[in-house]
């Protein structure tokens, strides 16, 4: 009897904790949806309403009318290009690092340096890169952003893909070498297919990183039609301090794609950590 009571109490406590945790996470997201469906007058009422009184899509219509598509397009272009470049370069470099011994301990130095990059405050890099990019005309261009985003996506991709390549058994490559296949051939037709699924998950994660990036997107691009979504949101917060309906509509637009991929990101996160812990 005592044990059953204790178990019941334990169960109830567990359920309450779980419910509270999920509520704390979901309320802000719900609030974003809620606010995005209110009309401007309801938004600024001093007693906030928990459900929109007259749900309206006007905020969404407004942000589309103001040309949010251009910014969505920029964000997609920049995130996808940055990811493609990172993944290709990381795949090539990882293979070289895993299978070839460069002189002067370059393999280890490079891998450690790439980890160190992760801990640098990016603003430290932003000032000198700004003047370098300015010299070659990369400020205020999508190409400049794509290049700058490599600071985040390339180290990440190198570490994860290096882990995958390192874990591959050597037999396939050795057999192919005996058959006279060139290293390039081996890389494309043997190694690439073997790491494909891991690389795909890595690229989703890199997409999310680039999609959300704020600092370089803020500093390196000024022209409104070239802005990415996070900067559009920041400008909304600054300029029209109570256009919350539209702000939340843009916020939801910026969040849906990443939430859509949360399953893959979750798997990647748990796998990535087990790799980096080893």
């Amino acid at each position: 009897m005592y044990y059953r009571l204790r178990r019941l109490a334990g169960d109830t406590f567990f359920r309450l904790t779980l419910a509270a945790t999920l509520a704390v996470i979901l309320v802000p997201i719900y609030w974003m949806i809620n606010t995005s469906l209110k009309n401007p007058r309801e938004v600024i009422r001093s007693v906030p309403t928990f459900f929109p009184e007259a749900p309206t899509l006007a905020n969404y219509a407004n942000v589309f009318a103001q040309g949010i598509w251009t910014n969505v397009f920029n964000t997609v272009t920049v995130a996808v290009s940055a990811t493609v470049i990172s993944i290709i370069l990381a795949f090539l470099a990882s293979y070289a690092l895993a299978r070839f011994r460069f002189p002067f301990h370059l393999n280890r130095i490079f891998l450690i340096w790439v980890l160190v990059v992760r801990i640098l405050p990016p603003i430290v890099l932003a000032v000198p890169l700004f003047s370098a990019f300015n010299m070659v005309g990369l400020i205020n261009t999508r190409q400049g952003l794509i290049l700058a985003f490599q600071i985040y996506t390339l180290p990440y991709a190198i570490w994860i893909i290096y882990g995958f390549v390192k874990a591959l058994p050597l037999e396939f490559e050795e057999a192919a070498t005996i058959d006279g296949a060139s290293p390039g051939r081996i890389l494309i037709s043997i190694v690439a297919p073997l790491v494909r699924s891991g690389v795909l998950a890595t690229s989703i994660f890199s997409l999310v990183l680039a999609w959300n990036e704020f600092l370089f997107a803020l500093l390196f691009v000024r022209t409104p039609r070239l802005l990415t979504l996070p900067v559009v949101i920041a400008r909304y917060i600054g300029e029209y301090s109570t256009q919350w309906g539209e702000l939340m509509a843009v916020g939801l637009l910026a969040s849906l794609p990443v939430l859509f991929f949360s399953n893959i990101v979750y798997r990647q996160l748990t796998q990535g950590f087990s790799l980096s812990l080893k």
Partner: peptide, 13 residues
């Protein structure tokens, strides 16, 4: 969810 949504969206909310 919180760690994959953009910090700007979170700040806005």
């Amino acid at each position: 969810f919180p760690m994959i949504i953009s910090t700007m969206v979170i700040s806005a909310v």
